[in-house]
Design a protein around this nucleic acid. Structure first.
Lengths: 190, 190
DNA sequence: ATAATTAATCTAGCATCGCTAGTTTGTCAA
DNA sequence: TTGACAAACTAGCGATGCTAGATTAATTAT
């Protein structure tokens, strides 16, 4: 019988509608506007239904963030052109990272600022969470012996640039110069 | 008559008690526990009194953050030892910055993550907000032509390290190695 | 086919939040 | 003493996340 299959499929579709609604509202009106009541209205079910899909609001944010990690990883990988030099690749990935952060501030906030209940560096950590790191590690590898540490530092530098600029604490006009300085950290081999 | 003087003095003292209470509760139980009702109870006044001191809750967070910026600046300046080399000074300031972030996570959150209503890079920006940047610029200056941009990048790298480690996304055990990499960014002169 | 059981969903409401209108209390000057 | 003004309070509005308990729908057993 395909009845239970249909049910799990419909349940999955409803869950996706929740995540899509959360993302849409967050990107338009900010995360403060993503309330359980508003999401319930959007999917045309009562509020408790949401709690049969997610433990709490944070986990809904987490589901959106997980999508974001997948998309960020894809964007970083797409920025790596075969024809480029090793140095250019690092620069392109850095630029792609910041482009992502500034083009999708709400998504970036979900991924890196808001509580999400996502678990990193664990055996059950989803592929999306590792993949962006992997993309960065790919371009960092030619410059470093300890790729993991160098990638962590590269990532941290980019994250700091994104956050400080997003909060208006460093000058947007000098973004390119700052990326150049980051390049210096990477290309001085270690 | 010293009556109105006494009144403004008492008002100032009450305002300080609000800020101290907010900071104390935040450092012990997190910012979510810092509610207007709880603060009102702490200072033994009714809730509307708080709104005669601050426009809204964010501004209370901002007042605590302002204290934090002053203390961070002091810690960074204290980390600069006259006997050190230029390179050691950068390293000491970096270590001091991260020490501050990890020793006072609630304070760091108020300063860099939560909405505070603080205005940066303006004519009326308080000294505390500029001073930490100044301390970093002092140790960066020997290595850079464009001190402002280099300091912004240095600061961003430290902020990123603090945030990613605070959120458990990079390995705490490798903090020293990451600082070493940041040093490389700085000491490669430009 | 009907009854009993389980699953799915809803209504209604709790506790709490930031914030404020309207009132009372206290403090001065006339 | 009275009237004006300032200071503080009580009470409550409109939200929030979340949940207990009732209700309806679907499935299984008789």
């Amino acid at each position: 019988m395909g009845i239970s299959e249909r049910k799990t499929r419909e349940r999955g579709e409803r869950e996706r509608r929740i995540v899509v609604a959360a993302r849409t509202i967050a990107e338009r009106d900010g995360w403060a506007s993503v309330t359980i009541r508003r999401l319930a209205e959007e999917i045309e079910y009562s509020q408790p239904v949401l709690y049969s899909h997610f433990e709490n609001r944070d986990q809904i944010v987490g589901a959106v963030a997980l999508e974001g990690f997948g998309e960020l990883a894809a964007m970083l990988r797409a920025a790596i052109r075969p024809s480029s030099t090793s140095k250019e690749r690092v620069e392109d990935v850095a630029a792609a990272y910041l482009d992502f952060a500034f083009a999708r501030p709400a998504m970036y906030e979900a991924m890196f600022v808001l509580p999400t209940g996502l678990r990193f560096a664990r055996s059950d950590t989803p592929a999306q969470l590792r993949d962006g790191f992997g993309a960065m590690a790919t371009v960092i590898a030619p410059f470093s012996k300890d790729v993991d540490t160098a990638t962590e530092t590269f990532w941290a530098a980019l994250h700091g640039l994104a956050e400080l600029e997003r909060h208006g604490r460093i000058r947007p006009a000098f973004r390119a110069q700052r990326i150049t300085l980051i390049m210096q950290m990477v290309s001085g081999q270690l």
